[in-house]
Design a binder for these strands. Structure first.
Lengths: 136, 136
DNA sequence: ATCCTACGATGGACTGAGTCCAAGTCAAGA
DNA sequence: TCTTGACTTGGACTCAGTCCATCGTAGGAT
């Protein structure tokens, strides 16, 4: 994530303090913050940042492929900065904790042509559900 | 789905015209209606049915395991009456069409113990994404 | 057949997540 | 340092879903 700001500048992004702060908040592994959580953390450094700007910036990061959108519970979407390392998610059904996981093999390979109904299938998202050690 | 009403009666459900209509609307294969769509179709037969009742009934059907909740897009949840036949979903990234699909093998088998972080993993939901024949 | 009552239905207010927009601000090139 | 169009702001708005006080009724009891 450290060179994210460089990549963005290279793509013609106008660099503002708001965008810098949002990008900094989204740094690390196993980070899966909601937009409101991103806003709250960003506001600790830049008190007057607005929700609209956070939504705009997250949306741009997603369409640039720098951040992945994850929705594991039908509630708020979460934003995962680990977009350059393909992975799936393991979610605790009780407390909602999310871990990045790496299954073996390619899930796409398990969908036979006959089951594709003429679709051009390009990716598979897997959500594993269960109980985490604390909730078990 | 035809014997659903029988099963529900057997579980002590009080049978009302509203519940009957909701259960009837949720009949068929590849049915993935939102709550509002269920409400609209139910209202064609029973004009004064309320949204709250549709939400209540759907929620009960889900907790009884008769209907599965599917959220493929972070927007409205969809309700899938095919809950007794395990399957995954193939979604068109452009128009949102959803098909039930049956991959080979068990996705759970591809998550090694070392990648389970102590979780008791009980199921895997797979969403395949791509373009349907009409949108390609 | 009628009565009772607890379970279910109703609709309107409310919440949470996200979008939209007109007006103001400022990064960065000239 | 000036200019300008890209960016930010906050408030109104939408959409999906929940909550709740009140009313209605399914189905067992008599």
């Amino acid at each position: 994530m450290s060179d994210l700001l460089e990549r963005l500048r290279g793509r013609g992004w106008r660099m503002t303090s708001q965008r810098r702060v949002v990008a900094e908040v989204l740094d690390g592994d196993h980070v899966h913050l909601t937009a409101d959580e991103v806003h709250a953390r960003a506001a600790r450094r830049l008190p007057e940042i607005s929700r609209a700007t956070v939504y705009n910036t997250l949306g741009e990061l997603v369409s640039l492929g720098e951040v992945a959108e994850v929705s594991t519970d039908g509630r708020a979407k979460r934003y995962d900065p680990n977009a350059h390392h393909p992975h799936q998610h393991l979610v605790c059904s009780h407390c909602g904790t999310i871990r990045d996981v790496h299954p073996t093999g390619d899930p796409l390979a398990h969908l036979p042509t006959a089951e594709r109904f003429g679709f051009t299938v390009s990716k598979a998202e897997v959500t594993y559900r269960g109980l985490c050690p604390d909730c078990a």
